[in-house]
Design a binder for these strands. Structure first.
Length: 355
DNA sequence: AAGACGGGGAG
DNA sequence: CTCCCAGTCTT
């Protein structure tokens, strides 16, 4: 089946057209300034599910704070999360630090350069493994992300549902056939760059495409119909009362979230799942859950926060407590200025505007 | 194979 | 508002 899709493709010409275009059109990106495997690694983790423009400032701050793999390995996890604050998918940061510790412990601080060793590290899946091996170590390994699937689905007219896990293996096999042995780094980066700049999800700029003459979808005028991708299902709505609890010293109660699951190890203002406990029992529930006696005050506003799999509907309330001491390990009093020392998810950064 | 896991941008 | 984007881990 691979032979069938590739039999009419001039592989050498495809490589040359792509590599020539990439050479003159690649963006100047901070992780392209050298071939430091650590920096390539950090950038590839940040770029998962995240656009280049969003990543750039985070990458600068991260490398300034943790210039080497050893700096990251020795860092406090809360400091790592603070630099990651707002970027999302926080398990990426926790897994990256765990993996870096493993590299120090098991590989003398040198990023592994075999597929087996590299792929065994936490947070390094098939894509990231191929990206590091090709970009940092110039090995002809596939690095199939969404861009690559979109470009190849169009060029080769692949009509499988790319949302299915089974589809990705096929694309890796195509890349193994197509990839330049002379410059696998530029080939992989080039095809991703093409997907980001020309072969975009909507209204691709086929007139400027360096591989237009290789593209089956363009030839048939079906580039807008590919790739085929099934829709995600809708998110569940979850209502909460989120509490800005202030004591008599103008300090606020904040809570460290569990070290696993959603927004793990980040901080938040206490949230009450009102559909489970009922709004009338709010003060009692806070007392039994957190050991904090509060008096509910006025409503400060509403926030809707959308995740990929659920929607938080937050009703923000002011509340008071006369306690100056907390007995729950998760909780802490901090003043307004102290809030910025802790990593908060974006939803709770938005809540701070109501203070 | 399906669900958990964030956040941002375009229209 | 609604729709789109999409790697890795867990179940």
């Amino acid at each position: 089946m691979i032979e069938n899709k590739l039999q009419n493709v001039n592989i050498y010409q495809f490589q040359q057209d792509l590599l020539n275009w990439y050479d003159t059109n690649k963006r100047d990106l901070p992780w392209r300034e050298d071939q430091d495997p650590y920096k390539i690694w950090v950038s590839e983790i940040m770029l998962q599910q995240t656009k280049v423009d969003t990543v750039i400032p985070y990458f600068h701050r991260f490398i300034t704070k943790f210039p080497t793999l050893h700096d990251l390995a020795e860092a406090d996890q809360q400091d790592v999360l603070k630099v990651w604050e707002g970027l999302g998918y926080y398990s990426r940061a926790r897994n990256l630090q765990n993996a870096v510790k493993e590299v120090v412990a098991a590989y003398g601080g040198e990023v592994p350069h075999t597929p087996k060793d590299l792929g065994s590290l936490k947070g390094v899946g098939p894509y990231t493994k191929g990206a590091i091996l090709s970009i940092a170590y110039n090995q002809p390994e596939p690095a199939v992300d969404g861009n690559v699937m979109r470009v190849l689905a169009r060029v080769l007219k692949i009509e499988d549902d790319i949302a299915k896990p089974s589809a990705k293996k096929q694309f890796e096999n195509y890349v193994r056939e197509l990839i330049s042995q002379d410059d696998p780094s530029s080939f992989n980066q080039g095809i991703m760059e093409l997907g980001a700049l020309i072969c975009t999800p909507k209204t691709p700029m086929c007139m400027f495409c360096p591989v237009q003459q290789h593209c089956k979808a363009f030839a048939e005028g079906i580039e807008e119909e590919l790739p085929i991708k099934s829709k995600a299902k809708k998110q569940k709505k979850v209502p909460y009362a989120a509490l800005l609890i202030k004591n008599e010293k103008n300090q606020y109660v904040i809570e460290k979230r569990s070290d696993n699951g959603l927004l793990a190890s980040l901080w938040q203002f206490p949230m009450v799942p009102i559909d489970e406990i009922g709004f009338d029992h709010l003060e009692n529930w806070v007392h039994s859950e957190y050991g904090v006696k509060i008096t509910l005050g006025s409503k400060a506003g509403n926030l809707k926060h959308v995740f990929s799999h659920l929607i938080w509907q937050l009703e923000i309330y002011q509340a008071k407590t006369i306690q100056n001491q907390l007995y729950d390990q998760r909780l802490k009093f901090v003043d307004k200025e102290g809030l910025e020392l802790y990593p908060f998810p974006v939803s709770h950064q938005k809540m701070m505007k109501f203070i």
